[in-house]
Design a protein around this nucleic acid. Structure first.
Lengths: 330, 330
DNA sequence: CTACGATATGAAATCGGTATCACATCCACG
DNA sequence: CGTGGATGTGATACCGATTTCATATCGTAG
C-alpha cells in the first residue's frame, strides 16, 4: 500500500497524509480520519521514498575496527545513547581491522546513505585522507586526531606516561613495554612515547630488547611477555598498551611462576571490567570511552545542524586506577 | 549530481548508466565512457532513489539488548561476517534492555527500511508477537525460541545442568544459584531449570534461600553472593547464570576471605575471555556465540532468497570448560 | 534467403513519497 | 469595509533512480 491508496482509504488527500506525518497544517478531523485508517490498514510510509525527495536519511554511519572489544563497544554505546534520542539509527560497519574495508565503507557512505559519519579508525593513510575529503556529510573521528575534522580523543601519551611513572616510582629498574602497532598513532605511538618519556625521566634507558609490539589480544600479550622473559636480565615492570595485553602477560607470569607484583609489576590502559577480578588485580588507566562516544555524537549533531567548517579537537583526560599489580615491593 | 546530469557528462543515455551499475547489456565503449566520467566527476548513485523502485535496501536490521556485552558482540561479529560478504550492511539498534525500544525498533523496521531482521530478544510479550506477525520481511531470532520463526539458540538447559552436575560430582552439599530474570526464557528460566534438575538428581533439594536472581553484571553478582553468604549455612557451591555474575561472586569471596574452590565452588556460563585470567580461573561453559551469529545470518539469507514459510530451530550445543574454580576439594 | 534468438539501446513510465504553488477561509486591525 | 497575516487545502511537479517497452542490429541455424 502506498500513500495514494492509503489517502483514498482514509478519505483525505495525499497531501494531508504527508502533512500528518511531517507536522504541517492539518485540521483535527482529518487527523482523526488518518489515525483511524492507520489502525485499520497498518500502513507505514516508505522511508526511502521520503529520502529521495527530502534528502534526510536519519541514519549515521559508524565505522568500527572491531565489534567484540570492550572499549569500542563502550564508545558505541555512548554514540547510540545520544543519537538514538535524536531519532537517528546507526548503520554499523565492522572493518575487522582491515582498512581496505574502512575505505570501502567510506565509499558506501558517500552514496547518500547517511546524514553523518563517525569513524573509529586506527590508522590514517593518504587514501583515507582523500576519501574523507570527498565526503559530503559531516564526519567525526573518535580515538585519533586528524586535522580538519572534529575529533574526540584520549590523552594517550599522558595515560601511558602516568602509568609508567607510577610503576617507576616504586623503585623498579628494568621497565619493559608491550605496545601496539606504531601505525596506530593513539594506542601505538602516543602510548609508547609516554612510556619512553617516563623511563627517561627516571634516568633509565629504553632498551629495544625490552620493547615488544603486540596485537590487541590476550594471546598476543601472552606471547610477547614470553619473549620479554627470554631476555637474560628479566624485566621487573611491564607497561602494556591495553588491559587485554596486560591480562595475557599476567597469564604468562602465572603459568611460569613469576610473581606479580613482587617479581614483575604490570600496568595496563583501558580500565576493562575484568581488571578488578584478575588473578592479580590490575593497575590500569581509566579512559572515558563512553564519554568519547557521547561527545563525538554531540559534535556530529551540532556539525549536521550548523554545517560550520570550524573543527575542534576534544581531548579527554584519564584517571589512574592503582591496584595490586603495581603494589610496592617489600 | 544526478543520473541524468551524469549521463549527459558521460555522453551516454540514462539507461546506459543504470545498466552500468546493475549488470545489464552494455557495449564496451559505453562502459569505458562511463568509467572515465566516473573518475572525473566522482558521481555515486543515490541509494534511496534506487530503493524506491527496486525495493532492495541491502540493509539488515539487528536488534540488540545491549552493545557492551562480550556474548552479544560475538554474536554480532558472526552476523556481520556473513552478511558483510553478501553486501549487506547492519542497521543496529541498541535497546538497552528496554523492551519498549524493541517494539519501536520493530515498528521502524516495518517502514521498508530493511530487507530482513535479526532479533536478539530477551523477553517475548504479546506485543512482540503481534508486531512480529506484522513484519513484511524475514525475521530470525537468536538466543531464544519462538514458534513460527527461524531461531538459533543455545542449549541453555543442558549447559546449566552439566555445569551444576560437574560441581555436585565433587561432593558439594549446599548448592546455590545466582540466576537471571525468569522472563528471559533462555538465560533465566532454562538455566535455572538445568540447575534444579542436576540438584534434584543428586538427591538434594533446591532451597529458595539459596536462589538469587541477578542482573547481567558483575556488580549484581557481587551483591547476590553477599546475600547468599548471609544465610546461616553457607553455600559450598554457586552456579551462576553468566560469567559476569560469577566474576562478581568471586570478587565477593576474595574480599571476604572465602576460598574458591575450597570453601565454595563457582561455575559460570559463557566462556568469557577473562575467565582464564580471573582471580581463580573460572569453570564455565562455552556457548557458540559467534557460530550463532553466523548460522542466524545464513538462515536469514536463505529465508530472504526463498521466502519459504518453513521455519526451523537450530540448537547449538556446548562445551564444558573445567578450571580451578571447581577443582576437587582435598 | 529468411527467421529467430541474443544482444543492445534510449524514451518514457514508474516507484512512493515531499515541496511548491495557487487558492480558500477566517479573524483582527486600522 | 478593505487589507493582511495565519491557517488550511489539494493538484501537481519533482526527487533520482529502475524497469518496461518498442525497436534495432547481428550472427547463425534451417
Amino acid at each position: 500500500m502506498n500513500i495514494s491508496e492509503f489517502a483514498k482509504e482514509a478519505g483525505v488527500s495525499v497531501s494531508a497524509v504527508s502533512r500528518y506525518f511531517n507536522d504541517g497544517y492539518l485540521a483535527d478531523d482529518k487527523k482523526e480520519k488518518i489515525k483511524a485508517a492507520l489502525e485499520r490498514t497498518g500502513y507505514v510510509p516508505s522511508y526511502s521514498a521520503r529520502t529521495v525527495r527530502s534528502k534526510v536519511t536519519k541514519l549515521i554511519g559508524v565505522i568500527l575496527p572491531k565489534l567484540s572489544s570492550e572499549s569500542i563497544s563502550r564508545v558505541t554505546e555512548g554514540i547510540s545513547d545520544v543519537l538514538g534520542k535524536e531519532g537517528f539509527e546507526l548503520l554499523l560497519v565492522n572493518t575487522a581491522n582491515d582498512y581496505n574495508r574502512e575505505i570501502s565503507s567510506l565509499e558506501l557512505f558517500r552514496q547518500n546513505r547517511v546524514d553523518g559519519v563517525i569513524l573509529l579508525a586506527s590508522v590514517f593513510t593518504d587514501l583515507h585522507r582523500s576519501l574523507l575529503a570527498k565526503m559530503r556529510v559531516p564526519v567525526v573521528i573518535i580515538g585519533q586526531q586528524l586535522k580538519g575534522y572534529n575529533c574526540v580523543c584520549h590523552n594517550d601519551f599522558g595515560a601511558a606516561y602516568s602509568m609508567t611513572k607510577l610503576m617507576l616510582s616504586k623503585g623498579v629498574k628494568r621497565p619493559a613495554l608491550i605496545g601496539a602497532n606504531h601505525d596506530d598513532k593513539a594506542a601505538g605511538e602516543d602510548r609508547r612515547k609516554g612510556f619512553e618519556k617516563a623511563v627517561e625521566e627516571a634516568g633509565l634507558t629504553v632498551d629495544p630488547k625490552y620493547c615488544e609490539t603486540a596485537k590487541f589480544s590476550m594471546e598476543s600479550g601472552y606471547e610477547k611477555a614470553k619473549r620479554l622473559f627470554s631476555n637474560r636480565a628479566k624485566p621487573d615492570c611491564i607497561f602494556c598498551a591495553t588491559d587485554n595485553i596486560a591480562a595475557g602477560a599476567m597469564l604468562y607470569c602465572r603459568e611460569n611462576g613469576i610473581k606479580v607484583p613482587d617479581d614483575v609489576m604490570i600496568g595496563g590502559i583501558g580500565d576493562s571490567r575484568f581488571g578488578r577480578v584478575l588473578y592479580v588485580p590490575l593497575s590500569t588507566v581509566h579512559l572515558h570511552y563512553k564519554t568519547a562516544g557521547i561527545e563525538g555524537a554531540k559534535m556530529l549533531l551540532s556539525e549536521m545542524e550548523s554545517r560550520s567548517q570550524v573543527h575542534r579537537i576534544l581531548q579527554l583526560e584519564y584517571d589512574i586506577i592503582e591496584r595490586e599489580s603495581t603494589a610496592k615491593e617489600n
